[in-house]
Design a binder for these strands. Structure first.
Length: 630
RNA sequence: CGGGGUGUAGCGCAGCUUGGUAGCGCGUCUCGUUCGGGACGAGAAGGUCGUAGGUUCAAAUCCUAUCACCCCGACCA
């Protein structure tokens, strides 16, 4: 072995108060970057494969990963950006426990709501504990004991914590793990509108999040979203757009409106139940075919010619049950569409619904698997909601009566030539009018690509895949009320606190950057997230002139704030170049004989092909600054 | 939760059907030749075959249990 590289990792002293950042310098031979040619057999997602191959992460258990030095550096880059933007938006960082007592969750009922997703266990004293998936209860508990006056609000507190979800099936490496790094922030207010109100902080967080992902160099967008199990009113998801994303987003190309599939509204659709029958109603035997697909195959009927009738039960309180009895909602959509529970709930104007249990529904006259829109139509407590695309009496494209196949309301039978105006058992007018109509038409399905935009007439929605990296919610008083957290207001009355909550998946952001930006050779880090900005590849690490040159270049770059990794390993050039591409450092400087003879290095961006161009030693820093945008 | 599958050296795999000395590639170590896009040769180290029982003269191999992990599916009637 030749001369050992110096062990210094920095060439400049740092003042405790200085804000001028000096870049890090590290030697490949002195750190741990275990690259590999093969990815583990179980890795599928590009980010999973490349992060493991590049020596960023290692799997310890299902959905649990070690973050090796390179991976940890990327996490730090993300968290630094997050911190800066959160602090700038007026939030304060704190750190809450990952290990929490389960009794806290009983106050809000989320111990049950989370169910098996909650990582919980009993300690030696038999105390029920859990590892936090989010911290609404913990922070509310803290605030409940620390802040009781309106004078101390508004407040926005955040933490960067390891979080836990006992995923049934962790997958895709960092994208869906059981342990992951998150930033979560919680804000507290006396009111929604105006100065110091929830909306003000929500908007500030929206801007901060946009800044964060912008600075991370990600192709992202904010979309309207369902509030989900955390509850509350308004919410936006921040999505990184890439084809491998798990979520489907719909966007209006005209107005920029974007929403996830569950939330997305659909523009006006014309409908009419009127229309002649397409033929005699005919019951056909369809044994063991409760599903749309099965029937479609058996009868050779397109799914878009079938009516799918899904039975929901209204979740009533015991008093409501006493007063109204069981209430049912039948949602009818076209066979190729998906019922959206949230939209059904909204259309029916009820508090909460759930999919009917088959047993119970059958006992009430719904032959699950073979239900039609006319089942129990007009009976007390039964509402039929039909999606506009299913509420068609006329096949407009073909200009003739619409051909529908629906369940026959008896086991193993379906009805062909169902006709709205003939087969409801009452006239359309009887069904749809009156103070309490038995049948109504409303948007009750998930949006799809090609649906009319809700924001621009004549424009079709487009679908795109994405990875959710951030989510902001207006929680309202859900947690403060459940936990009895009230604050004395200026009016000398107690008010439940109004809350917001704001999360960023830090480790997931790291993975999504790789999903978004890689090629056949490896990762292509955005400059802001790269573990090092510059990789100095030394062709002959045992040549003192080469190493001196590398150190000089590195210290010059460090003084300008660049993080530099020096590949000083005694490996063949090809090997080192392959590794360089794999770990994806944005700028590569190669120090070899040819350049050295002219007092130059070879300068190459990760995104460039070929060997790069010669740049004189004294011009290297400027050249790098140029690329970094100043 | 349903179905399917895999556990053999750090990684990727073969061997198991038909029981009998545990193997290959990559990686690691030594020596030599090489040296600008994952070199070549010679040698070496490294494995209680996931774990626990059982059958057998003999088990990575057959049986049982158990654990771990992976993949697919999962309210659409």
């Amino acid at each position: 072995m030749g001369t050992l590289p110096a062990m210094t990792t920095s060439t400049a002293t740092r003042s405790p108060v200085s804000t001028v950042r000096t870049g890090d310098i590290q030697y490949w031979s002195r750190t741990l970057i275990p690259t590999a040619k093969d990815a583990p057999a179980d890795a599928e997602a590009p980010s999973h494969k490349l992060l493991v191959r590049g020596g960023f992460i290692r799997r310890l258990a299902a959905g649990v990963y070690d973050y090796l030095p390179l991976g940890h550096r990327v996490l730090r880059k993300v968290t630094e950006i997050v911190r800066e933007e959160m602090d700038r938006a007026g939030a304060s960082e704190l750190l809450l426990p990952a290990l929490c007592p389960t009794e806290l969750l009983h106050e809000t009922g989320r111990a049950d709501e989370y169910g098996d997703l909650l990582m919980r266990f009993e300690d030696r004293h038999g105390r029920d504990s859990y590892l936090g998936p989010t911290h609404e209860e913990v922070i509310t508990e803290l605030m409940r004991s620390a802040v009781s006056s309106y004078k101390q609000l508004p407040l926005n507190l955040y933490q960067i914590q390891t979080k836990y979800r006992d995923e049934f099936r962790p997958r895709a490496g960092l994208l869906r793990g059981r342990e992951f790094l998150m930033k979560d922030a919680y804000s507290f207010h006396m009111h929604v509108e105006g100065e110091g109100g929830l909306n003000e902080t929500y908007d500030a967080m929206y801007r901060a999040y946009s800044n964060v992902f912008e600075r991370c160099g990600l192709n992202f967008g904010a979309v309207e979203a369902e509030a989900g199990p955390i509850g509350g009113s308004a919410s936006h998801e921040f999505m990184v757009f890439c084809d491998t994303g798990e979520d489907t987003i719909l966007r209006c190309p005209e107005t920029g409106y974007a929403a996830n599939m569950e939330k997305c509204e659909i523009g006006e659709r014309s409908w009419s139940l009127e229309g002649e029958p397409s033929g005699e109603a005919e019951d056909v035997h369809t044994p063991d075919c409760p599903g749309i697909e099965d029937v479609s195959k058996l009868l050779k009927v397109k799914t878009r010619n079938m009516l799918k009738s899904v039975v929901f039960r209204v979740k009533s309180t015991p008093e409501e049950l006493e007063k109204y009895g069981e209430e049912w909602i039948v949602a009818v959509v076209r066979g190729d569409h998906e019922v959206n529970e949230g939209k059904v709930k909204k259309a029916a104007e009820v508090g909460a619904i759930e999919l009917a249990e088959p047993e119970k529904a059958r006992a009430n006259g719904f032959e699950i698997g073979y239900v039609s829109p006319r089942a129990n139509l007009g009976k007390k407590g039964v509402l039929v909601v039909v999606d506009p695309d299913a509420a068609q009496g006329l096949d407009i494209e073909k200009g003739k009566p619409m051909f529908w196949v629906t369940g026959a309301d008896k086991k193993d039978y379906h009805t062909k030539h169902f006709c709205w105006s003939r087969d409801l058992g009452m006239t359309i007018e009887e069904a749809t009018t009156g103070s309490c109509p038995a049948l109504m038409v409303a948007d009750v399905r998930n949006a799809m690509a090609g649906d009319p935009s809700p924001k621009a007439e004549g424009v079709e929605l487009e679908a795109q895949r994405g990875i959710e990296v951030g989510h902001i919610f207006k929680l309202g008083t859900k947690y403060s009320e459940a936990m009895g957290y009230t604050i004395m207001g200026e009016d000398q009355a107690l008010h439940p606190v109004i809350m917001g909550c704001y999360g960023i998946g830090v480790s997931r952001t790291m993975a999504s950057a790789v999903e978004m930006s890689h090629d056949d050779n490896g990762i292509v880090w955005p400059l802001a997230l790269a573990p090092y900005h510059v990789l100095v590849t030394v062709m002959k690490p045992d040549d003192s002139a080469s190493m001196d040159a590398a150190k000089n270049v590195a210290s010059g770059l460090s003084a300008s704030g660049f993080d530099v990794l020096i590949d000083d390993r005694f490996e063949r050039p090809g090997f080192k170049f392959k590794d360089a591409d794999l770990i994806g450092i944005p700028i590569r400087l190669t120090i070899g004989d040819k350049g050295l003879a002219e007092g130059a290095v070879e300068f190459k961006l990760r995104t460039d092909g070929g060997k790069g161009e010669f740049v004189k030693f004294d011009a290297v820093v400027d050249r790098c600054l140029e690329v970094a945008g100043g």
